[in-house]
């Protein structure tokens, strides 16, 4: 699908999710996997908008691209915000997720959900650009056995 550019604003979250839905259409990606990919893109775009740009006082765009490669759908988010490799972020542990809600810290759940749901994740920083790349396998039996 043709890449699209959205301003780095929370108003762009819904259109970004719609782009993912459109990119998944006709590929055979299951309804569940499509929803997960939309959740992932929402969570990471929120992160880019709020921290990559917002906290740094930067403004800019998010470019989203979707492509079908063999048996998977790849979504790439490209931005010029602060460098942020979410795969290096500390995630809530199993113990944290068992805790009563009274004792919970809410941070990190979005990234936790992303890392749990995505089949492949890759982050690259090239020049002043961040690339967050997410892949979902289109057919259940193509998912590697370790997932």
């Amino acid at each position: 699908m043709e890449p699209m550019t959205f301003p780095a604003s929370l108003d762009s979250l819904s259109p970004l999710r719609k782009y993912v839905g459109d990119a998944a259409e006709g590929t055979g990606l299951s309804k569940e996997a499509t929803y997960k990919l939309q959740l992932i893109v929402d969570e990471i775009a929120t992160n880019i908008i709020s921290y990559g740009y917002g906290d740094s006082g930067l403004s800019g765009d998010i470019i989203i691209a979707g492509e079908v490669l063999d048996n998977k759908l790849r979504i790439t988010l490209e931005d010029t915000g602060r460098e942020f490799d979410l795969s290096k972020k500390e995630l809530p542990s199993e113990d944290d997720l068992e805790k009563p809600l009274e004792e919970r810290e809410i941070g990190g759940l979005g990234i936790f959900l992303t890392m749990r749901d995505v089949d492949n994740f890759n982050y690259k920083r090239i020049g002043d650009r961040n690339y967050n790349i997410f892949e979902m396998y289109i057919k259940e039996h193509d998912v590697p056995s370790n997932k």
């Binding site: 939309q38 959740l39 979005g110």
Partner: peptide
């Protein structure tokens, strides 16, 4: 139709 971690945070506040 959609609930992100921002929605979970609200459920947490309501629960508390």
């Amino acid at each position: 139709t959609f609930l992100s971690s921002a929605g979970l945070r609200i459920l947490l506040l309501i629960y508390r």
